[in-house]
């Protein structure tokens, strides 16, 4: 019941938006279920500035080399200011939690 009401309200909001777009668009927050683990705090502190955890979860299981390259890409290509120490810890976390054993 409550859900239906919310859906209806959202539906109405959509109509207004379509007509005028006079109000700000709000992109919803989606809670992605990321695994807790060693150095998760470092991941949380560095990665969320630019992207959701969904970006991590939806890469599939990957080898350590892949995660290391991804972290380097964030720093070198996208200019994320992540320290060398943090880069290593983030890679460890990703390989541990989302690795494929290689």
């Amino acid at each position: 019941m409550k859900k239906t009401l919310i859906a209806m309200l959202l539906g109405l909001g959509t109509l207004n938006l379509q007509a005028t777009l006079t109000e700000d668009v709000e992109v919803p927050y989606v809670p992605f279920e990321i695994k807790m683990g060693k150095h998760f705090d470092v991941v949380q502190a560095n990665c969320l500035t630019c992207h959701s955890f969904g970006y991590i979860l939806n890469q599939g299981k990957q080898p350590r080399s892949f995660w290391k390259e991804k972290v380097e890409k964030m720093v070198n290509a996208f200019k994320a200011p992540i320290s060398k120490e943090d880069q290593a810890l983030i890679t460890d976390y990703l390989a541990e939690q989302y690795g494929n054993g290689q």
Partner: peptide
């Protein structure tokens, strides 16, 4: 599909909210 719809969208398979995918 997600239970959370994005603006002007019906609920879709959601890979990320920021940036939206």
């Amino acid at each position: 599909v997600s239970t959370i719809p994005f603006p002007q969208k019906r609920p879709l398979i959601t890979y990320s909210d920021r940036p939206p995918l």
